[in-house]
Design a protein around this nucleic acid. Structure first.
Length: 479
RNA sequence: GGCCCCAUCGUCUAGCGGUUAGGAUCCCAGGUUUUCAUCCUGGUUACCGGAGUUCGAGUCUCCGUGGGGUCACCA
């Protein structure tokens, strides 16, 4: 059975790069009907925070990734790691090193001065004399001193590193707590991991972990080192690049399915397909098809995907999401028409909220340019005439097509083009020249509100006086 | 600097020795639309460089160049 995991350290929020590797691991497990575990890497007691942990779990919930069983906390397994340390010590595969931090630093500086690679020199590897006073030893593992450490990476292919590149690294600090590469190897093995999918910044940890696997006689999982996500300039993605926190995407009005779809296509593809539901991803995903090269974050594509998913989200769900953006349209009698109209011009839920607000709230002001253009000439007569026709209309005014009939009759009766009434009416209703169809807008806000907005516009035009005439003439001249 | 990894349109990618190098996004043009947007149609843009292997190389090999990662008692 395929078993994978995501193993974040609770030192901050969940990064989108982290979410992508989590997604890959989750998909790899689900594709095979396997298990996906969450493990919290909190062995460095001084750097953990509960808020960070909560943030990670919140992000997981938001995007809908679940994990099997309980989350594993490494901080609660120190006894277990201790047993393995004792075992290695007893078997002579690890040893106490009495070198102080200061001595180590000095050694490192010397090596750097000689342009050598800084590494531990193994001075206590075979030490059996009397240990120096007053030094709490660290525990180091005996790494092979010659030959190659090799493994077949599921993404990168064969990786081989000279054993001399790996020194006798520390597996337990002087305070007795175990270190990262040691506990990762133990937990990955004990949790039955078959496939380890992680960022390729871990590529160099793998040989160290292999040393632990071999010392303890564990069987190796298959490793997949996924290339990083860069920013739009091709540099490493950092906080400077804006939204790297997964939850920021929620705040900005992105849908989790859009974010997941975006992330899965960074480094993975299935022919020419661009849109993947979670079910399709599960069905099609194979970590062995992962791309070797790094990819760049591209906001345009995310936005495009988000717009797509907004158009395909049920209206009831959209109404719910709009709530977080200060728009409450629950129970609105024209909810369907309203969302059909606005959904076409929104790339995020935040934009959708703005579009909805534009319609359901009376315009606070008229856009100056639009007003000048639309309210010139006989706009007042047009608006008043149209208002009169609406008031005298004998059939029902309920659906967009009802209003459309009025508009058509008005245009026909007056022998004018659509724009003649359309433009001033649009600015009257929305305050600007862009936006949804007039029929829809009127149907959504209803007859009373339509008449009120027209009246307000007429009133506004009245206040412009001769000034606007001049402005209009100027516009005509420019043309 | 040592070691490791990577390299197709601006971006995400398809390609797995023989293709007019395909799709998506972006951008531009046209159509639909009273407007904007959506939608539809069309268009511009790519195999990092150099050797080699081969009848034939984006695809294989080597070198170069560029980019990235990593070198902790962090994870």
């Amino acid at each position: 059975m395929t078993v994978t995991r995501f193993a974040p350290s609770p030192t901050g929020y969940l990064h989108i790069g982290g979410l992508r590797t989590a997604l890959f691991s989750w998909l790899a497990a689900k594709n095979k009907g396997g298990m996906f575990h969450l493990r919290i890497e909190d062995t460095d007691l001084s750097r953990n925070s509960d808020e960070a942990l909560a943030a990670i779990i919140e992000a997981f919930e938001w995007v809908g990734l679940d994990y099997d069983g309980e989350a594993v906390y490494q901080s609660k397994r120190f006894d277990l790691y201790g047993e393995y340390i004792d075992r290695l010590l007893a078997e002579g595969k690890a040893y106490r090193c009495y070198m102080s931090k200061e001595e180590l630093d000095a050694l490192r500086e010397e090596q750097m001065a000689r342009k050598e690679r800084p590494r531990y020199d193994g001075r206590y590897r075979d030490f059996d004399g009397t240990p120096p006073e007053g030094v709490e030893p660290v525990i180091r593992i005996k790494a092979p001193q010659s030959g190659m450490i090799e493994f077949d990476d599921g993404v990168k292919g064969k990786i081989s590193i000279a054993a001399t590149e790996v020194d006798d690294f520390i597996i337990a600090r002087s305070d007795g707590t175990p270190t990262y590469n040691f506990v990762v190897a133990i937990d990955d093995a004990l949790m039955g991991l078959t496939d380890v999918i992680r960022g390729d910044d871990h590529l160099y940890n793998t040989p160290k972990q292999i040393v632990v696997y071999e010392a303890l006689g564990f069987t190796l999982p298959r490793f997949y080192h996924v290339a990083m996500i860069n920013n739009e300039e091709g540099k490493k993605l950092s906080k400077r690049d804006g939204a790297t926190d997964v939850m920021d995407y929620k705040k900005q009005g992105f849908l989790p399915e859009a974010l997941l779809n975006f992330l899965v296509r960074l480094g993975w593809s299935h022919g020419d397909q661009e849109i993947f539901s979670l079910e399709e991803m599960v069905k099609l995903f194979d970590p062995n098809n992962l791309n070797k090269s790094a990819s760049s974050y591209n906001l345009d594509k995310l936005l495009w995907l988000n717009a797509h998913y907004i158009k395909n989200t049920p209206h009831a769900k959209l109404a719910e999401l709009l709530h977080d953006f200060g728009v409450d349209i629950h129970g609105h009698d024209k909810l369907e028409i309203l969302l059909d109209a606005t959904t076409q011009r929104a790339k995020t839920i935040a934009e959708l909220a703005a579009q909805v607000r534009l319609i359901i709230e009376r315009p606070a002001a008229f856009n100056e340019k639009s007003a000048k253009k639309a309210f010139k000439g006989d706009a007042v007569q047009m608006l008043e005439g149209f208002a009169a026709m609406l008031q005298g209309w004998e059939k029902e005014l309920h659906l967009p097509c009802d209003y459309h009939a009025v508009l058509e009759k008005f245009v026909a009766d007056n022998e004018i083009g659509f724009g003649k009434i359309g433009q001033p009416l649009r600015v009257s209703l929305l305050g600007d020249m862009t936006g949804s169809g007039l029929d829809e807008i009127m149907a959504i806000i209803g007859l009373g509100e339509t008449l009120e907005r027209i009246a307000k516009a007429v009133e506004y035009i009245g206040t412009l006086g001769s000034e606007s005439e001049v402005a209009v003439e100027q516009i005509i001249e420019v043309k």
